[in-house]
Each structure stands twice: as structure tokens, then as C-alpha cells.
Design a protein around this nucleic acid. Structure first.
Lengths: 196, 196
DNA sequence: AAGATTTTGAACACTGTGTTGATGAAGTTA
DNA sequence: TAACTTCATCAACACAGTGTTCAAAATCTT
């Protein structure tokens, strides 16, 4: 077998690094994290770190890439029924939000004070094509440029919603948040008129 | 007069630093910018830099703080007429967007590949109280929690819109973008139904 | 012109980087 | 089990950048 994934030692080492990294990332921004302290906290040799990563930024990138793969997998599941664009958009949102809750450990760090605030943006951009297709399928006479702007607004808006959600400890269920996002996306400020 | 603002030398020095800094920030992330190269490009002594800033991060923070003050000033102007919440929200948006266009040099860098993506978020949070007041004045029976979530969505959505706007070279006018934001905020996906 | 303030240039100790080579430990294959 | 391969460790190294200091030169203020 190849050396990449089969060796127990490598996996253990990477786990230690990852655990120490996320721990440090809760206390300080990545620019303040040195390879030295990371390795000391992880209990591994500094040279070992350099055998796997170029620097702490490459480490972060690799972690992010891993979660993105999970996302793609979640999105690739064929939507159950999705009768129209609205249904499929909400479907996609709920799936994404659930995925975030499943990976809450990383997401909390990323959305925290010292995380990569643009990380969720990268994630949601994965769903961009899927959503744009859904929109253009439904709004056949909308200009592509307007759809782009709408998606820019809405995807970014979801990130803001998610950030607040995480700040509140993810108390609400993923479905609740997805429905809140749905109502805002569908009705805008009319959101408030829907309450009885 | 105090030494802070009256001395020509200080202002020139800070201008050189700022110019060099934004120039570097177009090519690489802030973590990759050293005080050395910054000073070399600015044509000043390294010691002089440390006389004014602790490090490059403090420099960035100071630049951001300066623009935030401009923002506060722009927001403090009493709204012309603002008949209702909708009018005042749009009014606020247009004012903010104009401010961004006025400071486009910095904003382009901030929204670019290596800028502080959260910068605009900090800016818009300044308008938070103003907007929340406008909302709650209009939607007297809405729950505070829902208003918070709505604002989280909408403010973040505006950032996404602005980012796309900047990416396209700010070709459209600030008013155009503000109106686009308005329509999305008011009607959500119904945005597309408004076209004739 | 006199005095205060700022910039400069050089030096300094110091922290962290990224790499190397030898050694032992752990995994893999025959 | 034995032979082989891969990986982690440790110490050492040159190097880049940091943050500070000081005397001297330049510039501003009055």
C-alpha cells in the first residue's frame, strides 16, 4: 500500500497536530501561531511537522480542503423531490446547515474571533452552481447578471445567519435555521408580516 | 501644538507607509508582509516604522479605524426624510455604499484576495443600531430575536453584494446597488417577479 | 537662531524558520 | 521471524526578521 493513508503513525501525528492547532486557534489568530508552540503542544517534533506541511497556513488549507470534500459529498446527494426552485434551494440549505452542525468543532473555530471568516464563503461557493441552476430553471426570464447579484446577496446572507447561529451555541436545529433563511429569501422584509 | 497631527514629517512618513502597505496588500496577504520590505518600499527607516506602529497588524487596524470614523460621520447625518423603516433603510444603504465608493482604494484591497474580508462586516455593524431601531419602529410586534436574525442575514447579504460590485470594478452607481439591495431586502426572491 | 522633535543608520540580542544528517522506532513484506 | 522500508526524533546549522537602543543628522516650531 502507498505511504499516504495506510500508516498508523502518520495518521496519529496528523491528528495530534490538528487537535493542537484547533486548540490554539481558539485563543489566538493564525498569524500568532508558531510551528514551535504548535509542535510542543501536540507533543511531536518540529521536523515531523515540516515533513507534512510547509507552514501553519498550509495546514489550515488542508483542513479546510478536507471539510470541503465532505460538503461536496453532501451536496451530491440527489435532492429527494424538489418540486421547484424554492423547494430545491431550501433543500440545499438544510443539507448544508446540517453538514455544518455535524462538523461544528471546526466551524466554531472558523467562525470564532480568530478563525477564517471567509471559510464558510468558500464552502457556500461550492453550492453556487447548484443554486444558480435552480434559480435559472425557475426564473427563465431573469437576467443572468441579476441572478448573480441575488445569489451574492443570499449566500452571503446565509453566512451571516450561520454566524449568529454558531454564536448562540447552535441551540436551534439546523432545520429551524434553514426555514428562517427560507422565509427571508422568499419574502425579504415581508418575513415579519408572515407571523399570525 | 501637539506633535500628533501638526508635524509634516510624521504625516509624510505615515503616507509613505500607508501607500506601500496597500500596494503590498494587493500582491500578498498581510501575514506575508514583513516590516523590512514595507519600509524598503516606503523608503523609510525601519526604526521609524516602530516609532509609529507596533507591527503590520496594528497598522492595518489603524487604517481600518480611520475609515470607520468616516463611516460614523456619514451615518450621523440626519436622514433627509425617511418616511418609514423601508425608506430609512434604503437611505442608510445608499449612504454607506457611497462612502465605500469614496474610499474605493482601501475597499478594493480589503475585498480583494488578500484583504481583511471581515472589514466590511465591522463597518456595517456600525449601522446596526441605526437599522435595528428602524426595524423595530416599523415592525412593532416582531420578536427581537427574529429581528436580530433578519439583520444578520441582511447585513451580511449586503456585504456579498458589495463584494461582487467591487469585483466588477464598481461600474454601477452606488444608488443602483442600493436599489438592488433594497429590492432583495423588501421582496426576497420575489425580486425577480417585479420586472415587467 | 535656538530648542524640540523626528528620522536615520548601525548595532545588538533574540525568536522562530526551514533544512540537514544520524539514530532509533514502528510499520510492511516475504 | 528477518529483511526492508518508512517515519519520528534529536541536535545542529545558517538564515531572515524582530524589536530595541544610541548617537548623529535632518527637520519642524517659535
Amino acid at each position: 500500500m502507498k505511504s499516504s493513508s495506510g500508516d498508523h503513525r502518520v495518521r496519529v501525528t496528523k491528528m495530534m497536530i490538528r487537535r493542537a492547532f484547533t486548540e490554539l486557534l481558539q485563543k489566538k489568530p493564525i498569524q500568532g501561531i508558531t510551528v514551535q508552540e504548535l509542535c510542543k503542544l501536540a507533543g511531536i517534533n518540529r521536523g515531523t511537522f515540516y515533513a507534512h506541511y510547509q507552514d501553519v497556513y498550509a495546514l489550515l488549507e488542508q483542513i479546510e480542503r478536507g471539510m470541503m470534500d465532505d460538503f461536496r459529498q453532501a451536496l451530491d446527494q440527489p435532492d429527494g423531490q424538489a418540486r421547484d426552485a424554492r423547494g430545491s434551494v431550501v433543500d440545499i440549505c438544510a443539507r448544508i446547515f446540517q453538514c455544518i452542525k455535524d462538523n461544528s468543532d471546526i466551524c466554531v473555530v472558523m467562525l470564532g474571533d480568530y478563525g477564517d471568516k471567509d471559510f464558510l464563503g468558500k464552502l457556500l461557493s461550492i453550492g453556487k452552481e447548484t443554486c444558480l441552476n435552480a434559480y435559472s430553471r425557475y426564473f427563465t426570464d431573469a437576467k443572468p447578471r441579476e441572478i448573480e447579484y441575488f445569489y451574492a446577496f443570499v449566500s452571503s446572507g446565509c453566512i451571516g445567519l450561520l454566524r449568529l447561529w454558531v454564536q448562540e451555541g447552535m441551540a436551534a436545529s439546523a432545520m429551524e435555521i434553514a426555514q428562517m433563511a427560507e422565509r427571508i429569501m422568499l419574502s425579504g422584509i415581508g418575513f415579519f408580516d408572515q407571523k399570525a
